[in-house]
């Protein structure tokens, strides 16, 4: 764990985790995580299946609240405030920390309405047509959509749907965008387009992306956190933990931990 290096490279901390342990029905999925995610950078979470990287990502905007029996110990700080404090409304957290999911999940409404719905929920009062256009442009899907804004979001291809979902998240103007394996259901060309979109977005948003694809982490991220899972005595199943967190180049070129190196080189996972 190398949180000091993080402080040196980027003094602005967006999301901080202090000794976070997340449990499902009493058995921990990830344990004792300390990690400071910098602002306006792309941070990738990588690791083998079952190491809890999605669980960690979902804890950043309290999406885990929707899963029965999921509890969190420790503190998740967003701009210095504990988002799990009693007086914090999870809905407000999610309005400031948006999310793009593994499976493209547009609403069964028109393309226009997919964007407008989220903006309206967040109390947007400006020019809706303009917002829809700008959001679709930023998500690099405007060209494909501009002639069929009134058609169902499901008339688009998988990759286009995912970019529509990114546009929907952009339209709500969050400060952070969480992406949970956004390309895992897509073909290579769509994946490249999404990655280009991420490059476009990182100047304005803090992006945290979970990915199975190490090349993708290398291509899109500034910082990389490597998670691993291990059997723990007295526990059923594997428990995830943070192995190493540093600049992406360091993680891939000169990792400190043996496990990181083995994973990067494809020896397991």
């Amino acid at each position: 764990m190398d949180s000091k290096a993080t402080h040196n490279t980027s003094p602005q901390i967006c999301i901080g985790m202090e000794n976070v342990t997340i449990e499902y029905n009493g058995s921990p999925a990830v344990r004792n995580i300390y990690c400071d995610i910098p602002s306006e950078k792309v941070t990738a979470l990588i690791g083998p299946s079952g190491c809890g990287k999605s669980t960690v990502l979902r804890s950043f905007n309290r999406m885990n609240d929707l899963i029965e029996g999921c509890t969190l110990k420790g503190k998740v700080l967003f701009e210095g405030k504990d988002i799990y404090a009693k007086n914090v409304d999870p809905v407000e957290v999610r309005r400031r920390i948006g999310m793009v999911f593994q499976q493209p999940n547009p609403f069964p409404k028109s393309i226009y309405e997919n964007i407008a719905f989220g903006a309206r929920i967040n109390g947007y009062t400006g020019d809706m047509d303009n917002l829809v256009e700008q959001s679709l442009k930023q998500a690099a899907v405007w060209e494909e959509c501009k002639d069929k804004l009134n058609e169902s979001g499901y008339s688009l291809s998988g990759g286009q749907q995912q970019r529509l979902c990114i546009a929907r998240t952009i339209a709500t103007q969050p400060e952070v965008i969480l992406m949970d394996e956004p390309c895992s259901a897509l073909d290579p060309i769509s994946t490249l387009k999404i990655e280009e979109t991420i490059h476009e977005l990182k100047s304005r948003f803090t992006i945290v992306i979970v990915t199975h694809n190490m090349q993708q982490a290398l291509r899109v991220s500034d910082m990389t956190a490597f998670y691993n899972a291990e059997e723990t005595i007295g526990m059923s199943g594997k428990v995830g933990y943070l192995v190493e967190f540093s600049e992406t180049q360091k993680i891939f070129n000169s990792p400190k931990e043996k496990a990181t190196q083995d994973y990067i080189q494809g020896k397991f996972g």
Binding site: N61, M63, L66, V91, E92, R94, R95, R96, G98, M99, V100, F101, Q103, N105, P106, F107, P108, F117, G118, I121, N122, C165, R168, T169, T172, P174
Partner: peptide, 10 residues
């Protein structure tokens, strides 16, 4: 996923 989509945009 629809439920998550909705909660995910606040």
């Amino acid at each position: 996923k629809l439920r998550e989509a909705s909660y995910g945009i606040g």
